[in-house]
Nucleic acid binder design. Structure first.
Lengths: 194, 194
DNA sequence: AGTCGAGTATACCGATCTGTATAGTGGACT
DNA sequence: AGTCCACTATACAGATCGGTATACTCGACT
């Protein structure tokens, strides 16, 4: 559980590789994975395609690194919010929704990158697949552990409801149906814990 | 509000056009919009590209018809469930989640087609954009009208919570994180209405 | 008989796709 | 001095992209 992704990073992050991955992450998220070619990534990063393929080997692997890297950052971001919330499990649940609200406002105007990537990946054998499902499973496990400390008799159902509110908030935020979806989810979570 | 989509259908649905749209719908949903080319759509439908472009004019328009058509079918599917539920607003809310569960199990193994399409469309000026946001806004309006009949003093918050549960259930179902997400959402909705 | 709409078949356009090849630069470490 | 590594530059391969063109068949309606 220390490593964020099921498939750990295999790529040596040389300076050019880092620039390429940052450019790819921005382009993939903003325009979609299939809509972005490797030539564009190379041009935006100020890197040649030769270097791209020397470091990553394939576009598929760039996609995997993109998602695994974003997953890693999210878990670190969330860990900081959980640490600041203290030991009370109710406060920690609310801290998750606070973290999601801040993350969505800053970095996810188009919704969850994992969900969006999943929409473009049809093959279940794609190496990015375990990264996507791994993060969601990890989030459900987190809610389950917190729910067990709050209401052991209904921990499973409570965790699933929190998960639905959490995913719903990310989608609603991405589509812009109503403002501050994370705050609505947090408020409903607070009511559930009372 | 009688017409499902903001942009009504302009395409005359000749037999070949119908076959092409059905093939496009299946391919777009399974593999993603950008991953499917017009040559493949034509081949799968047993239609020539000439016919495709005579009927639809552009791939972009095929995408719009795909989403508008699916939206139309969903609203008809939902209307049948609402009619069967009778006049009680609480029963009607639960009927929405029942319809979503049945729809997801049959036709949406990969989650909401609107959300998935939105992930691939970056340009807000894309003609498919109002179709996507239109459906979600319509769903929120539906929940709001039902919530006003149930708890007028907290209708807005209740409707938003139902919307979060609904969208969360579709995402959770699509990612397969836990089984029968629609049933979990329905159960939580039932608790909220008590 | 003549016309028209719908559809088929096939070839083509320029652009872009992922991925590879060859050749060379510059710095760090031994 | 020699070796390695990260990187740049450029050209290319083979396939596929969205979209267009020409020429044809067939059935329904007038």
């Amino acid at each position: 559980m220390g490593t964020p992704a099921e498939t750990p990073h295999r790529i040596v992050m040389t300076p050019a590789a880092r620039r390429a991955l940052d450019a790819a992450a921005r382009l993939f998220y903003e325009r979609g994975i299939h809509a972005v070619g490797v030539d564009l990534i190379a041009a935006e990063a100020g890197v040649t395609k030769k270097t791209l393929y020397d470091r990553f080997g394939s576009k598929e692997q760039i996609v995997v690194e993109y998602l695994a890297d974003r997953d890693e950052r999210w878990r670190e971001f969330l860990a900081r919010h959980l640490d600041a919330a203290g030991p009370d499990p109710r406060a920690r649940v609310l801290a998750v929704f606070d973290a999601t609200g801040a993350w969505a406002a800053d970095l996810s105007p188009k919704g969850c990158s994992m969900v969006n990537a999943h929409a473009e990946i049809s093959d279940p054998a794609h190496p990015a697949h375990p990264v996507i499902t791994g993060q969601k499973r990890w989030m459900l496990d987190l809610f389950t552990r917190l729910a067990e400390d709050i209401a052991p008799d209904r921990a499973g159902a409570l965790a699933r409801t929190l998960m639905l509110l959490h995913e719903g908030a990310l989608v609603a935020h991405g589509l812009g149906i109503f403002p501050d979806a994370a705050a609505s989810a947090r408020e409903q979570a607070r009511a559930l814990l009372a």
